[in-house]
Design a protein around this nucleic acid. Structure first.
Length: 809
RNA sequence: GGGCCCGUAGUCGAGUGGUAAGACGUCCGCUUCACACGCGGGAGACCUGGAGUUCAAUUCUCCACGGGCCCACCA
């Protein structure tokens, strides 16, 4: 019985023998460079990550067997909010900055070590010397250098701009970090008094707490109710300020009263109107989400203010009614807090003006599946403003610049000074080069994590320290990543590498879908429907999980996990092992010829050898287009249902025969050849099982043997089979078809036995075979074997118009 | 409101301009000396619906319905 525990030892064996090392100086072999995702270091590798770890590892192993010099690194995305939260949970809030930072580092290191152990258990064959960690000094230097270069090229600027802001995290966030959430709220109808007349205008708002920042009332200019009022002034209740009524087509006549107040800033619409109509700016909120510029209400939280202000409006008699309303708001994806817009000084990278170029670069990449690129094009088409890269966090790469507090000029560091933390280090100049001011301030904000991870293809290729390698290794060969981060990781990588190198980051982009739970729902920690890859490995074996991954359908689509399917994967491995055991026992002490024993093959030998050739062709082509599903269906179906179910059964009578003649040797050669070739085709996906089984026959690793070659055309050689010269000189038929006929006859005899409820191994006296002329010689050459396989006393073959098989007991 | 993907037997899932792999499940038979995590056999799909292109469509085009994802809007 196959022992899955045997799988674990091979992980150590391969490492000890340095079999995954990238050979930087080997320029003879073609390079294959992989840009795998650096997982965020949560501490636990989940099913979706196990999926791509296995997928990319299988590709890497295949490429090595095909003679490539494979550069397969491993990376870790360590910095950012989730780690900070984990540290806060463990040590509480309020640690001094330096201590807090140190704890984050330790937490990330611990998490890396547990996740790496998981990756290694699944057989991930990365080269450990090619590891990068985003929080390391070396990696930071590269990130900061990339920022410096982008600054020199004019991509980086600092400006006051309304940004999406998380009051809980006290940091700006970017558009893709904001998620939609449905919320039940009140729509408040409030009367504003028109200046110099007794009239009022009724507006509808969900955000009365921002009344103090109201800078205009907007109506649709085609709205007959209000168009005469455009340009007139109204008074803001409570605060008494005067604001103008403006007209804008974006105002929906049918929503609320058709009139809305514009605050700085209640939502994105307000920002657009603010710019378009050049309105006044009233900063309405502090960075931690409290009212400011609201007179006596200053310091109230948003929630408190909503209640207080609403009550005040009620007292004043201007709150006409309240309606409940379900609407969608933006929340910060990492903490769930409603985001606000706050105007603040921030760092930006210019992306908006480059959207066409980004799409152009994306078109240079070959996308699998092709339509995945559409998500990137769609996202590029909707860039509204530049990429805000400032994050008010501790655990992140420092923004490597200083600025002049008087004129706002940016002061960049010397290259040799990187990595640098401007919050601690002195500026490289005493005075502002622009205005001469001595008030130079180091930036304390850190970079958005996507800034860190959007240069991975360059880093893995050797930039900026090994430019000799970089010249050969960039663009990288391929990236694999989930469809869920196309608009972030893929988008920013394609953009940044273009900005820095003018080139595309990778030749091929393989995007994969999500692994869902067995009923097709996303796995969520909070839903408790997660499936742990480690538990699966424990229960079914490592390679069962790997084989399931490959057999779970083409990438690019979401896939529900299935316990039934992983059972099947496990069964295949057991079958593989048992069949190998059969071959091992069959060989006994007989020395199997290394070369083809040309003269003693029968139809079944030639059939299975030629089928093997075709399958090797299918598998190679599938692997080459990174299609593990295609490769594994071809090989596993062939192995199980053709080799095991048919060939091994057809060969047993020769194996069990006394003596050691040519026919037996030919059979043993064929068994061994098909087994060994199949193992090598399976090895990239089920490396442990393949290695374990291979070790029954060989001292050498299966990965040191070449991937099976194949011929595009059917075997044209002639063979003498049972005294008949077969093939082109006798019949116009290739060996696959000839074998299929012989197999059909055996199947039909089995069926005849089954229908008469005769045990399959029970002897019969006679098989009558009627065959059309064209098949006569083929059947004749197979007759002797058919007789033995079916345990028949005799076989009679007759030429006939129609094919038929009958038996006599 | 916009975009993209998908709709194949009870389930999962390939695939092709000439009526469709494989797996699970199910039914029948078999402890055949590698394997009952097995072997042999059977049933089960008018490839969501409609229109069009074609000698021919599950495969191409359009529309509809259903499912999923993403984006925008939501005062």
């Amino acid at each position: 019985m196959y022992d899955p525990k045997a799988e674990y030892k091979w992980n150590d064996y391969w490492r000890e023998h340095g079999m995954f090392a990238f050979n930087r100086d080997d320029e003879a072999k073609p390079l294959f460079v992989i840009d795998p995702p650096p997982p965020f270091t949560t501490g636990d590798l989940h099913m979706g990550q196990a999926y791509w770890v296995i997928y990319i590892d299988s590709i890497a192993r295949y490429k090595r067997m095909k003679g490539f010099n494979v550069l397969y690194p491993v990376g870790w995305d360590t910095q950012g909010y989730p780690i900070e939260v984990m540290v806060e949970k463990k040590y509480g809030k309020g640690l001094p900055r330096a201590d807090f930072y140190k704890r984050c580092t330790e937490m990330a290191e611990a998490n890396i070590s547990s996740m790496k152990a998981q990756m290694l258990m699944f057989g991930a064959s990365f080269d450990p010397s090619l590891e990068y960690i985003t929080m390391s000094e070396q990696y930071r230097r590269k990130v900061q250098l990339s920022m410096l270069e982008m600054y020199e090229k004019g991509f980086v600027y600092r400006a006051e701009h309304p940004v999406e802001w998380c009051p809980y995290c006290v940091s700006s966030i970017s558009r893709e970090e904001a998620e939609d959430k449905e919320e039940q709220t009140q729509l408040n109808y409030v009367n504003f008094a028109l200046k110099d007349s007794g009239e009022t205008i009724e507006i509808a708002t969900t955000r009365p707490e921002l009344l103090h920042a109201c800078v205009a009332v907007a109506v649709n200019p085609s709205d007959d109710r209000y168009k005469a009022l455009i340009g007139k002034k109204v008074e803001v209740p409570i605060y008494g300020r005067e604001v103008k009524i403006i007209g804008d087509e974006s105002v929906e006549k049918d929503f609320g009263t058709g009139a809305e107040m514009v605050c700085t800033f209640g939502d994105k619409q307000d920002i657009l109107l603010y710019y378009k109509h050049k309105l006044q700016l009233i900063n309405s909120l502090t960075e931690d989400g409290r009212l400011r510029n609201a007179g006596k209400y200053d310091g109230l939280t948003i929630k408190e203010a909503k209640k207080t202000v609403t009550e005040r409006l009620k007292e004043m008699g201007v709150l006409k009614k309240q309606e409940s309303l379900v609407h969608t708001i933006k929340v910060h994806d990492r903490c769930g807090t409603r985001s606000e817009f706050i105007s603040a000084m921030q760092w930006f990278i210019k992306t908006k003006e480059h959207s066409e170029r980004i799409k152009e670069q994306a078109r240079q990449v070959s996308w699998i599946p092709e339509h995945a690129a559409q998500k990137l094009y769609d996202w590029s088409n909707f860039i509204e403003w530049d990429w805000n890269i400032s994050r008010n966090r501790v655990f992140g790469t420092p923004i490597p610049f200083w600025y002049c507090e008087d004129c706002g000029a940016i002061i960049a560091p010397e290259r040799s000074a990187l990595p640098v933390d401007p919050a601690l280090a002195k500026a490289p100049a005493d005075k502002c080069p622009k205005c001469g001011s001595a008030k130079l301030k180091g930036e304390t904000d850190t970079l958005d994590c996507w800034v860190d991870s959007s240069i991975t293809p360059m880093v893995v290729a050797g930039w900026p320290d090994d430019m000799e390698l970089y010249k050969r290794a960039y663009p990288t060969s391929m990236r694999i990543q989930g469809t869920d981060i196309i608009r972030t990781w893929a988008f920013y990588t394609i953009f940044r590498t273009w900005a820095l190198t003018g080139n595309k980051p990778f030749e091929t982009m393989l995007t994969h879908g999500m692994i869902l739970d067995p009923v097709g729902k996303e796995m969520h920690k909070s839903w408790g429907n997660g499936i742990s890859p480690n538990e699966l490995a424990e229960k079914y074996s490592i390679d069962s999980v790997r084989l399931w991954t490959a057999l779970s359908g083409g990438p690019g689509k979401d896939k529900p996990f299935s316990f039934e399917e992983i059972e099947h994967a496990k069964s295949f491995i057991v079958k593989l092992y048992n069949s190998a055991l059969f071959v091992k026992n069959a060989m006994g002490d007989v020395k199997v010829p290394a070369e083809e024993p040309h003269t003693h093959f029968n139809i079944f030998d030639l059939w299975v050898l030629n089928r093997l050739n075709s399958v090797a062709g299918e598998a190679t082509k599938a692997y080459d287009r990174l299609d593990l599903y295609g490769a594994m269906t071809a090989v596993t179906n062939f192995y199980w249902h053709e080799f095991c179910d048919h060939y091994i059964e057809a060969v047993k009578h020769r194996i069990y025969a006394e003596g050691n003649d040519g026919s037996k040797k030919a059979a043993l050669f064929t068994l061994m050849h098909v087994l060994s070739s199949s193992l090598r085709m399976l090895a990239p996906v089920i490396p442990h099982a393949a290695e374990e089984i291979n070790s029954m026959f060989s001292q050498e690793s299966v990965f040191l043997e070449p991937f099976p070659a194949y011929a595009e055309k059917p075997n044209p050689a002639d063979y003498i089979i049972n005294g008949l010269v077969f093939k082109s000189s006798v019949v116009e038929m290739d060996y696959e078809d000839a074998g299929a006929i012989a197999n059909d006859i055996v199947d039909d005899v089995r069926k005849a036995k089954a229908s008469r409820k005769i045990a399959l191994n029970k002897p019969i006296t006679l098989i009558n075979i009627n065959v059309p002329d064209a098949y006569y010689n083929t059947v004749l050459s197979a007759a002797k074997d058919i007789k033995e396989i079916c345990k028949a006393g005799d076989v009679k073959i007759e030429r006939s118009k129609d094919y038929s098989v009958s038996i006599q007991v």
